[in-house]
Design a binder for these strands. Structure first.
Lengths: 335, 335
DNA sequence: AGGGGATACGCAAACGTTTGCGAATGCAGG
DNA sequence: CCTGCATTCGCAAACGTTTGCGTATCCCCT
């Protein structure tokens, strides 16, 4: 059986309340007794019971984190950033991978508030689907910070990168290099990032005089295999674009594999740029030019904002991070 | 304020115990009343309080997971495998990234038992360091399953891949292709996998008549940058090995980058094989031959074993997974 | 109609903490 | 020595559930 405060108390012939005060560093207990209690607790191997503490004090030292896909290094690194903030404060992270599934997200959310998390960090799968649940949770007084993706209806805290600017940088670069026919491998579905990146690509194309035919817009979920398929399809068209934007780090893997299998040379036969810079872009042959985000930094900021909301009841803040372009060797010059 | 069972009870003029029974599907409450209670709970937006439940019932529906590095896809995928088992059972995962730091691991462990996790899944940073804590936790009755790495002293449950066999397969392949001089980029420190892989490489070398000079053994932590350094050092030696084993997926990134920067051709100038097959190996130029593990499967098995321990008090089991060799194009033939 | 068993519900204790309050003890100053 | 205040500690309630037990009610059968 597990050792409790009561056991320590009865062993020392004092009251549990005294033990509690001693161990939690509260005043009202003599130094002599306190030291004796601390020593005994150590000796008996006492671990405080957070469930009891949480019940009594109302906070649990636990934060809920929702990400769409844990095996995507982007989100993994974001979580690492959060850890960096929360670990020193003695907080634990409950991590839920929603697998890009709204119902699963909803179920996870319910579980998390049942676990009495003190705050929520979420990259929602859907830019609308679960807004009622989020709203309800917010109304319960649980602070929420969105990261990477957000739900536009809800005026909650968020930290995202400037997707519009990222796409614009990418396309202006391509334009400068003479590209006028652009294909896009996009994230399927109602995901926030997929939608805004596609939309601003189309807007920017308009502005720059770049052509994006309907059949040059392919999509897939965030996996290698679907991106592979999309790439094969696009490049088997009769008239092909001269450059392709791949809107997601994992999809870049599939695209690269497809290009290799098709024996299509980058950048000679087709140029390639990516959104997000994961481990591999710089090591591919050729190294891929892309828009780099800093997921760890993003997680860090999101965590700080959440902390602010928990402790100081800070009002919701929307943060937008600048994306920066990295030039490598995956884009040809068309004259 | 948050809605409780008591509030529902008083609103309906019944006793809290009845509400509890109704909501948890226990017998002893009429269908009519049960339905009324459920409807009211839904209307009031009731969320069960897991901390209170945990306190009263003694279990919290929470599992603790310890990994050395969340941004390593290997561990991320293992966690995904665990999620696959635990999500359908209504369990939550508390994820701790120890950052390959023993003291941090110890602190995390203490917090986790304080959170009253029902079980522990851990890839310990150290093949010995925190064994006393693990032992104590096990003595408290909290089931533990190690994965990927283990602590040999402790006869607890574990699931690891057959590192010896993996290394042997790799080296026999190199040997068949005529390689007799082998370098190793290894995981530094007292990590389980690093140690056993190096040891079995040396043993196998002995057996096959392969030479591994002391200066051909380089190490680093599990990052690109240190592997980069190690690779540069090894290849600036006067007499170089003809083939290199890279013992870790992230380190492969650094090695590849170094080779490219040094303009060393694989496999013409030096051959390369890796332990663990992450996203990128098959897309590099050339594609890298390697020993593939299945981290998701590993996580899945570890989770199942833990569940068995929790529900059926299963005795500790040691599971060893076969690794399988994937031949690609990174090894030359020496005649 | 009466008896008996099943069913439906209430009562209260318990899980391990924290905390306001009161009581006892200590000490210092007059 | 007495008053008064500060310090140290114990008492008991409270957090939101669950659950064993007791009692009242219902239904069914003879």
């Amino acid at each position: 059986m597990r050792v409790t405060i009561k056991q320590i108390a009865s062993k020392l012939g004092v009251n549990p309340s005294t033990v509690s005060r001693a161990l939690s560093g509260k005043s009202g207990v003599s130094d002599r007794l306190r030291e004796k209690i601390v020593r005994e607790a150590l000796k008996m191997g006492y671990f405080p019971d957070m469930t009891a503490m949480g019940l009594r004090k109302g906070h649990t030292k636990v934060i809920g984190v929702l990400i769409p896909d844990i095996s995507n290094p982007f989100f993994a690194q974001a979580v690492r950033g959060m850890e960096k903030i929360f670990y020193p404060m003695g907080y634990q992270l409950i991590l839920c991978s929603t697998e890009e599934n709204s119902e699963r997200e909803a179920a996870n959310l319910r579980m998390l508030v049942s676990q009495r998390v003190e705050g929520l960090l979420s990259a929602p799968v859907d830019s609308g689907g679960n807004s009622v649940i989020y709203r309800k949770i917010h109304a319960e007084g649980i602070p929420i910070v969105f990261f990477d993706r957000l739900i536009p209806d809800l005026k909650l805290s968020s930290v995202i990168t400037d997707n519009e600017q990222g796409i614009r940088d990418l396309m202006e670069y391509l334009h400068r290099r003479g590209h006028r026919k652009l294909g896009i491998i996009n994230l399927r579905g109602r995901s926030f990032t997929g939608k805004v990146r596609l939309r601003s690509a189309i807007e920017t194309a308009e502005k720059l005089g770049i052509e994006i035919r309907q059949e040059w817009i392919k999509d897939g979920n965030s996996t290698q295999s679907e991106a592979y398929e999309a790439t094969v399809q696009m490049l088997s068209l009769e008239s092909k674009p001269t450059a392709i934007i791949v809107n997601n780090n994992l999809m870049m893997l599939g695209t690269m594999k497809a290009l290799r299998d098709l024996k299509i040379n980058v950048p000679k036969d087709v140029s390639l740029v990516g959104f997000d810079d994961s481990y591999w872009n710089q090591i591919f042959d050729p190294p891929i030019s892309c828009i780099a985000q800093d997921p760890e930094q993003m997680g860090l900021i999101a965590a700080t904002m959440l902390l602010d909301a928990i402790f100081h009841h800070a009002k919701p803040v929307q943060t937008v991070l600048k994306a920066h372009f990295i030039e490598r060797e995956s884009v040809s010059v068309i004259s």
